[in-house]
């Protein structure tokens, strides 16, 4: 079972995660308007910027984050922003959307000018996250674990970050055991998605380059 302290931590993270959203108007644009490839590029760029802004707000609420060295805070956010964005978009993509919206979203992304070489692994990732049928709690904790990864480039105080990440991993582990008693591999599978995210992060720079060239 989760201890009282762990339960408080979980609820706190979940609450912060639920508030972490891009403005609704921007999300509506994505589904309602018809844009040219250029306008698609600008809209997706604005959404990415907005995503980083709300991600920072979520991250500020992670217990202990604000007591970290300021440059380490930036190194953690810089290292994880792309992964958190893919994780978040995987969650949105796997949600039950109104009829036709998933197709429209996929179509818009596919027509944004990014090569299939980069688009396909992204949709494969979305599908592999979808198969896990993650709860909101699992998404919140996995995002926190991703952000508080001590092995990001330019991090100085690895130990302090490990101390913040560990309780999140413990809560996630216990939560998985409680909610998936018949699937002992669930926790390991969640962590496996983090490995996939690292690969997507690695290819992200090349993906942006191909987007710009196109």
């Amino acid at each position: 079972e989760l201890t009282q302290e762990q339960l408080s931590l979980l609820n706190y993270i979940l609450d912060a995660y639920n508030k972490y959203r891009i403005p609704l108007d921007m999300a509506k644009n994505l589904l309602q308007e018809q844009f040219s490839a250029d306008e698609n590029f600008i809209l997706l760029t604005e959404m990415a910027t907005s995503h980083v802004q709300v991600l920072v707000e979520f991250t500020k609420r992670l217990p202990g984050f604000q007591s970290l060295d300021h440059e380490d805070q930036i190194a953690l956010l810089k290292g994880s922003a792309v992964e958190a964005m893919f994780l978040r978009s995987a969650q949105i993509f796997n949600r039950k959307l109104p009829h036709g919206h998933s197709e429209m979203l996929e179509d818009r992304i596919r027509k944004s000018g990014i090569s299939d070489e980069y688009i396909n692994p992204m949709f494969n990732f979305y599908k592999s996250v979808g198969e896990l049928q993650m709860t909101q709690e699992e998404h919140a904790l996995l995002t926190a674990v991703t952000i508080l990864s001590p092995d990001r480039p330019f991090v100085k105080d690895v130990l302090s970050i490990e101390r913040l990440q560990e309780p999140m991993l413990e809560v996630l582990h216990t939560f998985c055991k409680l909610h998936h008693p018949h699937n002992p591999q669930h926790f390991a599978r969640l962590l496996g998605r983090l490995t996939e995210l690292r690969t997507l992060n690695h290819h992200h720079t090349e993906m942006l380059m191909s987007w710009r060239v196109n």
Binding site: V52, K60, H70, I74, L77, A81, T205
Partner: peptide, 22 residues
């Protein structure tokens, strides 16, 4: 670092300070 990561860092720094304007 690439131009992209500088842009990302600028957004992060502004957001950490609570500035969203530009």
């Amino acid at each position: 670092p690439s131009g992209n990561s500088i842009g990302l860092e600028a957004i992060i720094r502004k957001a950490l300070m609570g500035k969203y304007d530009d």
